[in-house]
Design a binder for these strands. Structure first.
Length: 307
DNA sequence: CGAAAGACCTGTGCGC
DNA sequence: TGCGCACAGGTCTTTC
């Protein structure tokens, strides 16, 4: 599943292979892929024809291409979304939802999404200081400006900063987290509190921080919160490092199910296998219509778990 | 505002 | 063989 590290890898791929090229045509092959775009499939397509992206940016699991008039193409990959760049003549797989061709006749871009939870939409950028134009039409600006208050797509104004961006404030996060009345894993998955973390990396971070998923947020001590935050940062950074080389060929397979981080997983999906720290079998619990994996010894259930 | 449940999707693997 | 069902799970919407 594409979480922050996978989405960042894709962003880098789009920056390298799509930014700076002029779109000839955007073909919507499945209307559900643009269901949130108020202009509909035809409006979406006509809004993109002839445009040239200036940057590829990301917050949490969202990524977007910016254009020079404060409009943006916003993308979320959902559960199974992929961005594929390759020979425009290759066969069209059945799950391609949107296809972009370019005036240069080079590699096309295909948004492919088996389970159709992902989506694309055109939107406006709001807030922050608008980006200065590139000095000489090149890549003068960093691809993902670290500054506070950078412009964000309007539809994701409610998405909190992710822990790898400069706008992330640990003090603000800590205050908001401990004010919650819920379990710590629910909080980690709440993208309006902290973004970029999904079920896999939530379990991994909790395992590293030795915290149980049902631990009530209001009982977390400052040291535990900083331990958790460090674990989240570490797990995301390491996964990014492990996957960061997968988007450099002409045929670019940028997907979230690559499993390149599988070998490094300590908890997720390891029910019954021995804990890498203490050897106790990892346990699987039902959680929010999915699963949580914990070491019953390293991550003891709290006395008063949040239901 | 915050918390929780339901809806949205489809391919895979399992038991019967 | 074939059928139903649990499972995978991120986000938006609705309800309280």
């Amino acid at each position: 599943m594409p979480e922050l590290p996978e989405v960042e890898t894709i962003r880098q791929g789009l920056q390298a292979h799509v930014v700076g090229r002029t779109i000839a045509q955007a073909q919507v092959l499945h209307p559900r892929a643009v269901r949130r775009d108020p202009a509909g499939p035809a409006g979406f397509a006509s809004a993109l024809a002839g445009r040239t992206a200036s940057r590829a940016e990301r917050r949490g699991k969202y990524l977007w291409l910016t254009f020079d008039d404060d409009r943006a193409l916003l993308a979320h990959l959902g559960m199974s979304g992929q961005m594929l760049v390759g020979d425009p003549g290759r066969p069209l797989s059945p799950h391609v939802r949107v296809r972009f061709t370019f005036l240069d006749g080079g590699p096309d871009l295909r948004f492919t999404d088996q389970r159709t939870f992902g989506q694309l939409m055109m939107c406006s950028l709001r807030g922050g200081d608008l980006p200065a134009p590139p000095a000489n039409g090149g890549t003068a600006r960093p691809p993902c400006p670290p500054g506070l208050g950078r412009p964000l797509p309007e539809p994701i104004a409610h998405i909190a900063p992710d822990p790898l961006e400069a706008a992330f404030d640990p003090a603000v996060f800590t205050a908001r987290l401990t004010r919650r009345r819920t379990g710590v894993k629910r909080a980690l998955l709440d993208q309006s509190l902290i973004s970029g973390v999904g079920n896999i990396y939530a379990d991994e971070a909790l395992w590293r921080a030795r915290l149980h998923w049902a631990r009530p947020t209001e009982t977390l001590r400052p040291g535990e919160v900083s331990r958790l935050l460090e674990a989240v940062r570490d797990v995301l950074t390491e996964a990014l490092k492990a996957g960061g080389t997968s988007f450099d060929a002409m045929y670019v397979n940028v997907n979230g199910e690559s499993g390149y981080f599988d070998r490094s997983l300590h908890a997720y999906g390891r029910a019954g296998e021995p804990c890498d720290r203490c050897g106790t079998p990892i346990r699987r619990d039902p959680f929010m219509n999915r699963s949580s994996y914990t070491c019953p010894r390293c991550q003891p259930r709290p006395r008063h778990p949040h239901p």
